[in-house]
């Protein structure tokens, strides 16, 4: 099984990677990628099934918080039921999206405002080093530069300093991070293609 999985992973990877550089392999690449799309969709379903299994297990065992699990299970089954019948783009299903999903997520995101502000204020209490100071000063500067006054942008900061920091200084660091991420991605992908890493459980 280990050899089989490694062979499948390497073969699929080589064929798909070849499609980027050799036009003859483009059709093969498209075919394999579309197969992978279907598998990814199924993986999503499996993940949701796992969620159901976990919470039904909690309900069955009567664990602490099983009431919440029951609520989750009921909401999930009901949404899935109506979604399967009505389709996700039905106007009734938009109630689910606009009434529950969006408000809840947005409210959670909004609460992040308080948490971020709280953390920023307390940061130097715990970590008063150069990195922390630069981090906080930069954040404050860009906050100031993002806002305007009734008469227009904040002079110098909003018009000059903030854009320069964003487009020059932060750009250099971001580019370094991006290149580092790309190198790491490259390494990780090559290790998979060479069979050195087998995150699919083949090790």
């Amino acid at each position: 099984m280990r050899v089989l999985t490694a062979v499948i992973a390497i073969a699929a990877g080589v064929l798909i990677a070849g499609g980027y550089f050799f036009p003859a392999l483009t059709d093969v690449q498209t075919l394999l990628l579309n197969w992978a799309i279907i598998l990814a969709g199924f993986a999503t379903l499996v993940g949701i099934f796992n969620l159901i299994a976990v919470h039904t297990g909690k309900i069955r065992r009567g664990e602490k918080g099983s009431v919440y699990s029951a609520l989750l299970f009921i909401a999930l089954v009901a949404t899935l039921f109506f979604g399967m019948i009505l389709r996700p783009d039905h106007s009734t299903m938009k109630i689910v999206m606009n009434g529950i999903i969006i408000p809840t997520e947005a409210a959670l995101m909004g609460m992040l405002t308080i948490s971020l502000l709280y953390a920023a204020i307390r940061l130097l209490r715990r970590r008063a080093d150069m990195m922390g100071i630069i981090f906080l000063v930069t954040a404050a500067l860009l906050m100031l530069g993002s806002a305007t006054l009734p008469f227009g942008n904040i002079p110098l900061i909003g018009t000059l300093l903030s854009p320069w920091v964003t487009q020059i200084l932060a750009l250099g660091g971001a580019r370094g991070i991006l290149i580092g991420v790309a190198l790491g991605t490259l390494t990780a992908g090559l290790r998979v293609l060479f069979g050195a890493d087998r995150p699919y459980g083949g090790t």
């Binding site: 920023a120 307390r122 940061l123 130097l124 906080l136 404050a140």
Partner: peptide, 14 residues
């Protein structure tokens, strides 16, 4: 407000 709180609060906590 956030900028003021971050700077003021940051200095205080520093």
């Amino acid at each position: 407000l956030a900028m003021a709180l971050v700077l003021g609060g940051g200095l205080w906590n520093f």
